[in-house]
Amino acid sequence: MLDTASPKTPLIQMTDIDKQFGGVHAVQGVSVDLYPSEVVGVLGHNGAGKSCLMRMLSGAMTLSGGQISVNGEDVDLKSPQDAKKYGIETIYQTLALANHLDAAANLFLGRELKTRFGNLDEGRMYTETQEALRQLNPNFKNLKDPVSKLSGGQRQVIAIARAIYFQAKVLIMDEPTAALGPSETAMVADLTIRLKNEGIGIFLISHDMHDVFDLCDRVIVMNKGRNVGAFRIEDVNKDDILSLIIKGTLPDDWTPRGQAV
């Protein structure tokens, strides 16, 4: 149980993170860590600051205060490129796809494969995309349609493929199943476990308690920009978490539930 790598250096260590927009404190003094082969759920209301916290880790937003370190090394993530350099990949809730481009163009956007002469290597990008998508969804055929023409599930598959194709070490999944049907949701769950077993650390933002209890090793709960609780998943139940999400405190009679183990 405790061998969940606590003596190792964490993959990600976010310490005392602050984010202000003008006078609004979106995130205040939040500290989180993430170890290899671990899924950490990040929970909270809409507007509790969880997406904001994750956007800072993916380089989409700059910190107002605090420190992020990757593998024990302090880093300054000024842009998404910086984060990707450290192996931090993100599946955004909005999917972040360019609608007029096709699957391959989106998968390799910003990291296009090139031929010897520096031209786009369309052929290689297509075969790689085909391969990457087939692993997630064997029925994926419309490779050359602009992604605006694809279904929500197919778009999600492209967003996921893009994050894992480039050998992520840390994966941030922002509500990865919000737009999906039951079978696709199951596929994402399987994938999450597979990636975890491969040694990837995963932050999972989700509103779905089912997903959280099935997949996460630990959870942190945010309320009004603060971290109001960090637990191993065995120590809490659904009611505890809902209480934290809504009130920001645990039920009065709470004791760690997993102590018997």
């Binding site: 989409a60 955004y92 360019a98 481009l101 910003g110």
Partner: peptide
């Protein structure tokens, strides 16, 4: 093309 299609997505993609 990507910038015109979805500027935010382009930025997040690097």
């Amino acid at each position: 093309f990507s910038v015109g299609s979805n500027e935010e997505a382009a930025r997040l993609s690097g």
